[in-house]
Amino acid sequence: MANASRQAAWEFWGTELKRRREDAGLTQEGLGAKVFVSGGYIGQFEQAIRKPQLDVAKRIDEVLQTDGFFERMWRKLIDDQRYADYFAAAAELERLATRICDCEPMIVPGLLQTATYSKALMLAGNPYSPDECIAEKVRARLERAIILKDGARPRYWAVLHEAVLRVAVGGPAIMAEQLEHITRLARDRKILMQVLPFAAGAYPLMGKMLTLMEFDDAPPTVYTEGVYSGNLLDNPAVVKRVQEGYDLLRAAALSPEASLALIESAAEDYRRCASSS
């Protein structure tokens, strides 16, 4: 579904929500209280500024007695086969964010991946998938990175554990290309990058993959991912704790310049290894 038609469909979703809420005699605050979100969130849903999570759409159906209407529309709009079900809503929010902060313990974040690195990861996790399926997943991941090239791109900051640099996904040549891509983005000042070295030992948010997203007209949200599962967290107290942990993580990491030097050194090592093999 094209972005324009998808947005128009979300606007219809919001219009229907407002109409049916008013028919039920509920204010935004009243409906929000019944579905466990703020009245402000209901207003953002109605204006198609923000997309609800599936459990919220289900609760709206229950409260407004709409026989699954909002859940069915949500599934049609959010469930994009290019993305895993648990990531589709996060991918939508990514496009709206004004600031994105990634924390990755083992792999390069999706927004920074090259085609060859992404393909190697996809093949490792989907060894029986046909080539066209793998190619579509890679295309979808690369399309997400367009937001870093846009003039209105979000401010992007990532903290990678040094393990990300040392696990040779796809082999030396692919790793060299991937790390060189990251350094180009950083040298062009499109992203800010830090590396947490092995020498740092234990660290805040240890082993956690997470993405902090901030917006102009909505509260911040945290996306975390587990084994074939993902969660969007927008409880203010939880988000605040994650933000504090991320601040501590950045303080423990190498400076951006020292981080780039380490990434460039690792890229050179991989390039030499690829050339000699």
Rank of each mutant, 00 (worst) to 15 (best):
D102K: 00
C103L: 11
C103M: 10
C103H: 08
E104M: 08
P105Y: 10
P105C: 05
M106G: 00
M106Y: 11
M106L: 15
M106A: 15
M106T: 08
I107D: 00
I107M: 14
V108W: 03
V108G: 01
G110L: 02
L111M: 15
L112W: 13
Q113M: 07
T114Y: 12
A115Y: 06
T116I: 08
T116K: 15
T116Y: 12
Y117Q: 07
Y117G: 05
Y117N: 09
S118N: 07
S118F: 00
K119G: 06
K119P: 01
A120R: 05
L121Y: 02
L121T: 02
M122A: 12
L123W: 03
L123M: 04
A124L: 09
A124E: 01
G125K: 03
G125V: 02
N126F: 12
Y128T: 05
Y128G: 02
Y128S: 08
Y128D: 06
S129I: 01
P130R: 14
P130Y: 15
P130D: 14
P130I: 14
D131G: 02
E132G: 05
C133W: 14
C133E: 13
I134Q: 06
A135L: 11
E136H: 10
E136C: 01
K137S: 08
K137Q: 10
V138K: 05
V138M: 04
V138S: 06
R139K: 12
R139T: 12
R139E: 13
R139G: 01
R139V: 07
A140T: 05
A140G: 12
R141N: 04
R141A: 02
R141P: 02
R141H: 06
L142N: 09
L142K: 11
L142V: 07
E143Y: 07
E143I: 02
E143M: 13
R144H: 09
R144D: 07
R144S: 08
R144C: 07
A145T: 14
I146D: 15
I147T: 14
L148S: 03
L148C: 05
K149D: 15
K149N: 14
K149Q: 15
D150P: 00
G151Y: 09
A152R: 12
A152K: 13
A152W: 03
R153Y: 09
R153M: 02
P154A: 05
P154L: 08
Y156H: 11
Y156T: 01
W157N: 00
A158F: 03
A158T: 15
V159Y: 05
E162L: 05
E162P: 01
E162N: 04
A163I: 11
V164P: 03
